[in-house]
């Protein structure tokens, strides 16, 4: 087969080749579109990751609290968002939630997708945070309390600093998953990479080149997140622990 990478230099409206590949003054090439779609993928992923980390951590912590009601709340949250397919959850946020809660009607679909993807992922993160805290021996909790720390202080100074170090590796893979899972946003017309792939493939019939570029950008994004978190993992290593420096 023959490649035609120049497809990215074409204008998206008239299909003419644009010199230097970047459109200007109102013209958009497929390359321009691809990069903007990449921007949407990155924005959706990072914002959803933020939502997922905050809510997932809170729910994970609640599930380890010595209080039946809080544990129940954390468990229910996790089961709810873990057992409905992501795409269905995205549809719920897009079609159902605004219909049931009128004030949400004006919210841009971008934010709804961020919420949907974020809550879906928060269930997985809550599972990891819970496991991380429970992997610490009960003695650490007791030692904190015995020093006169209140329960929140024991979490803040004793349990969470270690638990978060332990869960960085699974959190890394979950963060890479969020980039991959952000692809479902195409279904509610967010102009991200997968929607670009579908539409540009249709318009140009150069599916392989388009898909290769999109797949490559997903890969680069996930890999970048992996490197950043790997760096964090190295930085917070505890001397004297397994795998720790010094």
């Amino acid at each position: 087969m023959n490649w035609d990478w120049q497809v990215f230099c074409k204008d998206t409206i008239d299909g003419n080749m644009v010199p230097r590949c970047f459109g200007g003054a109102g013209d958009i090439t497929y390359l321009d579109w691809l990069l903007s779609a990449w921007g949407w993928t990155i924005s959706v992923s990072l914002l959803a990751l933020l939502v997922a980390l905050v809510l997932g951590s809170i729910m994970g912590i609640l599930r380890t609290a010595p209080h039946r009601g809080l544990v129940l709340l954390g468990n229910a949250w996790t089961e709810l968002f873990r057992n409905i397919p992501l795409l269905v959850q995205i549809f719920l946020w897009y079609h159902v939630v605004p219909a049931l809660i009128p004030p949400l009607r004006g919210v841009p679909s971008f934010l709804l997708v961020v919420l949907g993807l974020g809550l879906f992922t928060s269930a997985r993160i809550s599972e990891q945070v819970r496991a991380g805290i429970q992997s610490l021996t009960g003695g650490q909790r007791m030692a904190g309390l015995a020093m006169g720390f209140t329960l929140p202080q024991t979490y803040r100074y004793v349990l969470l600093p270690m638990a978060f170090r332990i869960v960085i590796p699974p959190l890394t893979s979950e963060s890479m998953n969020i980039v991959k899972n952000s692809a479902v946003a195409f279904a509610v017309s967010i102009s991200e990479l997968t929607l670009f792939a579908l539409q540009a493939q249709e318009e140009t019939s150069r599916g392989i080149e388009i898909y290769l570029a999109v797949t490559g950008l997903y890969f680069i994004t996930a890999f970048a997140i992996n490197r950043v978190l790997h760096f964090v993992e190295q930085r917070v290593r505890v001397p004297g622990m397994i795998g720790g420096g010094g």
Binding site: T137, G139, Q140, M142, A143, G144, L145, A146, M147, G148, F149, T150, Q153, Y157, V158, P161, M162, R165, V238, G240, M241
Partner: peptide, 19 residues
């Protein structure tokens, strides 16, 4: 917490804070 702060405790597995 206030009471425990005045009662020292030493554990079998030391329970120093590793981080």
């Amino acid at each position: 917490p206030k009471l425990r702060a005045r009662v020292g405790m030493v554990f079998q597995h030391f329970e120093l804070f590793p981080h």
